[in-house]
Simulated scan of single mutants.
Amino acid sequence: MPRAKRGNKRLEKRKKILALAKGYRGTKSKLYRSAKESVERALNFAYTGRKLKKRDFRKLWIVRINAACRLNDMKYSQFMHGLSLAGIDLDRKSLADIAVKQPETFTAIASQAKAAIDNKPQPTA
């Protein structure tokens, strides 16, 4: 059976890790074992950071929508409920953008949400 040599594959793998570690200080950018640990840790932080970024932006959008709702004498939860009753399918990102850049348009949307809440049939006991 022929001898299996992994020269190229091993070298390519190590070059890839060292390329990712470029810019790290000292041993972490020069020696494979240290670089591998640092790169794995950094990639793990990057993965977590992408999840946190989504969470942070959603919080920001909700705060902006809530502030605009308060200017229109509504609470955020009432506003979102009114939107669903009115059949308005806008996501929080676009609503926050409208609230910041086009307040008069947001006021019109808020009035539609209010009207939908007012026209909702009341449950009878």
Rank of each mutant, 00 (worst) to 15 (best):
S77A: 07
R50M: 15
L83F: 03
I117T: 04
T48C: 10
K53F: 15
R64D: 07
A116H: 03
L43W: 08
A115L: 07
A67F: 06
A46W: 14
N72M: 02
D97A: 11
V63N: 09
N44Q: 12
Y76I: 00
I109K: 00
R92Y: 07
M74D: 03
I117D: 04
L60C: 11
A110F: 02
L52Q: 15
N119W: 04
A46K: 09
P123L: 06
S38G: 08
Y47Q: 10
K114P: 00
A113T: 02
L71G: 08
V100C: 13
T48H: 11
A108G: 07
A99T: 00
E40V: 04
I65S: 01
Q112R: 11
K120I: 08
A110V: 04
Q102A: 14
A46N: 10
D89C: 08
A108T: 13
K120Y: 14
R92K: 12
L43R: 05
A67Y: 06
R70S: 09
K120W: 11
K93L: 09
G82A: 02
P123K: 10
A68D: 03
D91C: 11
D56C: 13
N72W: 03
D89H: 13
R50F: 15
A46L: 13
F45W: 15
A86F: 01
D97Q: 10
K75P: 03
R70C: 14
C69P: 00
A108P: 00
D118I: 12
M74L: 11
S94V: 13
G49N: 07
L85E: 10
L43M: 14
S77V: 11
N44I: 04
T105D: 11
L71Q: 14
W61Q: 11
A42T: 09
Q102K: 15
H81Y: 13
L43H: 08
F106K: 02
E40Q: 08
K93H: 14
F79I: 00
L43Y: 07
I109P: 01
A96R: 02
K53T: 13
N119H: 09
R92E: 12
H81R: 12
T105W: 03
D97E: 05
R50A: 15
F79S: 00
E37K: 15
E37D: 14
A113L: 02
I62Y: 01
L60P: 06
A110C: 03
F57T: 10
P123N: 11
F57Y: 15
V100N: 13
K101E: 15
N72Y: 04
V100F: 06
S111H: 10
M80C: 06
A108I: 06
L52T: 06
D73V: 00
K114T: 03
I109V: 04
A108S: 12
L85Y: 02
K75T: 10
K120S: 13
G82V: 04
T105G: 03
K54G: 15
G87V: 04
F106H: 04
P103R: 05
C69M: 00
K54T: 09
P103V: 03
